[in-house]
Computed example of a mutant assay.
Amino acid sequence: MADVAKLAGVSAQTVSRVSNGAGDVVDATRERVLRAMDELGYRPNGAARALKRGEFRTIGVVLFTLSTTGNMRTLEGIADSAAEQGYAITLLPVAPTQAKVAGAFDRLSELAVDGVIAIMEVHLLDTAQAVLPPGMTMVVVDSGGTDRHSVVDTDQHLGARQAVQHLLDLGHETVWHVAGPEASYAGESRCEAWRTTLEAAGRTAPPLLRGDWSAESGYAAGQRLAGEPGCTAVFAANDQMALGLLRAFHEAGRRVPQDVSVVGFDDVPDAASYIPPLTTVRQDFAGVGRHSVAGVLAQLRDRRTPPTTVLVPTELVVRESTAPPPD
């Protein structure tokens, strides 16, 4: 800074005001200082400026896995939205155990972050005795309702209702369901909406099949359902399991959609290239990321902001894997 001040013929305090974007510097002086910075390759010390301001313009993201489509696309939405607001993100993957979650939150006090977005189940946060560092704000993604934390999530109930109602409107007597893991809030929400939508229509819910989000588990469920002559419609809790269903039905000679209709959930980028192209529920992952970042920034602007819940709407995308039941 002293070298810049000497080259520009100004004081070190003037260089400091220019580097901090202060408006009380004459334009000609500012240009002279900026030219000197460029000539000398000077870059302001971001860490020092952050300490002085009391903010780091960085949001921490705590999540269980990077291997799922939902987490990756949500993370992308968070990163894009944070960048638009002039923030960076610090990623902190953790194992889905109470001890690891608690340890991750202990580490947050060592990281230069202003707030946290946690992509995980809220019951783990509550039972792990995870304590945020004093003054730290947090938004929870893909989780259940709580009065302790602000929550942003896809409207899981709406999406599942859209999927089941679509199949009923096509004339199917009932809809079978391949659910996600019991430990998953999203999986259980979709399962609950499947059941209540059938009940509201006066239909009997068939026995539940459960998968683990993988195409392999969907394939195993499809092998069982292929032997059910009364199965003409299936709602899979994600597109990967729907892909496994399509393979199992194909191998068993059950045509999709002529003999059995299949609906997924997520609308992964490859869903339109499945054979046949998959009818599915589209999640707005970019919207989830945008609302999550907005929730953190709202709390940073006003610490008195109460916890809120934002449900991002879904959209049913109808393709060629669904049709009326066979005569």
Rank of each mutant, 00 (worst) to 15 (best):
H123M: 08
H123N: 13
L124C: 05
L125A: 07
L125R: 03
L125Y: 01
D126H: 09
D126Y: 01
D126C: 05
D126N: 11
D126G: 03
A128R: 07
A128V: 12
A128D: 07
A128P: 12
Q129F: 04
Q129A: 13
V131T: 13
V131C: 01
V131K: 07
V131H: 06
V131P: 00
P133V: 08
P133D: 06
P133S: 11
P134K: 05
G135D: 12
G135T: 12
T137N: 12
T137L: 06
T137C: 13
T137V: 15
T137I: 06
M138E: 10
M138C: 14
M138L: 14
M138H: 02
V139F: 11
V139R: 15
V140S: 01
V141Y: 03
V141C: 14
V141I: 15
V141L: 13
D142Y: 00
D142L: 06
D142A: 14
D142H: 08
D142K: 07
S143A: 15
S143P: 04
G144K: 06
G144N: 12
T146Y: 01
D147E: 14
D147I: 06
R148W: 02
R148L: 09
R148S: 12
R148C: 04
H149A: 13
S150D: 13
V151E: 01
V151G: 04
V152A: 03
T154P: 00
T154G: 02
D155S: 14
Q156K: 05
Q156M: 04
H157F: 12
L158D: 10
L158H: 09
L158G: 06
G159C: 05
G159T: 08
G159Y: 01
A160D: 05
A160W: 02
A160G: 04
R161P: 04
R161A: 12
Q162P: 12
Q162H: 14
A163Q: 06
A163C: 11
A163R: 03
A163L: 10
V164N: 00
V164C: 01
V164Y: 01
Q165M: 07
Q165L: 08
Q165S: 10
Q165H: 10
H166D: 12
H166V: 12
H166Q: 11
L167A: 07
L167E: 05
L167S: 05
L168E: 09
L168D: 08
L168H: 08
L168C: 10
L168N: 09
D169A: 14
D169R: 09
D169V: 10
L170E: 10
G171C: 11
H172P: 14
H172C: 09
H172A: 07
E173P: 03
E173Y: 05
E173Q: 14
E173V: 10
T174D: 10
V175Q: 00
V175M: 01
H177W: 01
H177Y: 04
H177D: 03
H177L: 08
V178M: 06
V178Y: 02
A179L: 09
G180A: 08
G180I: 02
P181V: 10
P181Q: 13
E182S: 10
E182V: 11
A183H: 09
A183I: 06
A183T: 11
A183V: 12
S184A: 15
S184Q: 11
Y185Q: 14
Y185H: 15
A186P: 07
A186K: 00
A186F: 01
A186S: 15
G187H: 02
G187Y: 01
G187N: 05
E188D: 11
E188Q: 15
S189D: 02
R190C: 03
C191E: 14
E192M: 08
E192G: 03
A193K: 04
A193W: 04
W194I: 00
R195A: 15
